[in-house]
Design a protein around this nucleic acid. Structure first.
Lengths: 147, 147
DNA sequence: ACATAAATTAGACAAAGTCTATTTTAGGAC
DNA sequence: GTCCTAAAATAGACTTTGTCTAATTTATGT
């Protein structure tokens, strides 16, 4: 029983293409062929993918989606709360299909990224911030390497 | 009396060039002209600078230090504990001349970065990690925007 | 002063991501 | 189904951050 969340049973992902279309519409996103294809890749399970990985996955069989569209779509999905951007690797952004509250474990030697369930980290004190500041997110990142 | 640390009175920075040379030697870094110049920029006070900013600052008068050397030197300083790499902005790495324990406040709208004193954040629970993992750092980043 | 390993350099290169101008598509009205 | 229009997608040029290479220069011990 690992303390680290590897694959969740907590989050429900769309099971069918129709589910995915509903999910996009509910989020206020027009479901296009490309967005559906990208959604199928991302929302199949909890995972962390870079834009390059999504681009490759989506075009495995034949070229279906352009680079610009992948970048645009990831941005749109993130804006609408379907994805979370994770900034831990200086060379690329990860997109996390798990949008429930949780934190991250980053292996700086290999570049791997894992989720840490929210209940395994407790931030018990935060600074008082000026009232004109809106908190978007409190990220806790544990940077580790194997030894 | 802001809760956020803006400029520390806790950390001592080298006051003279000779101080800086000693600081580099103590860290096991050969003090070259370029490293001293870069050190003078960075260790004048607590600040967060990107490589580009360091490059510009160092070459304000005349071209003294190449791009490759700036990148190399920032890496060397970070490896030897004189700087802390802060990965919060997807487009660039910040180098923090404050290496004492503290956390960060990131303004995602403007790209500004501020320190939060360690005593203003408390992480009271961490996951049990496999014993072959070495923790390098636990980063807490509060992402905010003005409203 | 000499030797040599370490450091610096210019500039080519690479990778991630953005932008632009054009074409295509989703979806509402008929 | 056809027409319309705004939204979305596209190719590819471009930008920015950062890395690499092969040659030169410098720090420092003898």
């Amino acid at each position: 029983m690992s303390i680290i969340l590897t694959m969740s049973e907590l989050e429900k992902f769309p099971k069918t293409r129709a589910d995915l279309v509903v999910m996009l519409r509910n989020a206020g996103i027009t479901p296009t062929h490309q967005r559906i294809k990208i959604g199928e890749v991302l929302f199949s399970r909890e995972q962390h993918l870079s834009a390059e990985q999504v681009l490759a996955a989506v075009n495995q069989e034949d070229d279906e989606v352009s680079k610009a569209t992948v970048y645009n779509t990831l941005g749109v999905f993130a804006e609408h709360g379907l994805l979370r951007e994770v900034i831990v690797d200086p060379s690329k952004v990860f997109y996390d299909s798990n949008v429930s509250k949780h934190h991250h474990l980053f292996y700086s030697d290999t570049g791997e990224l894992e989720d840490i369930a929210d209940e395994n980290i407790e931030v018990s004190k935060l600074p008082n911030l000026p009232s004109d500041l809106q908190i978007e997110e409190v990220d806790v990142i544990i940077r580790v390497h194997r030894n």
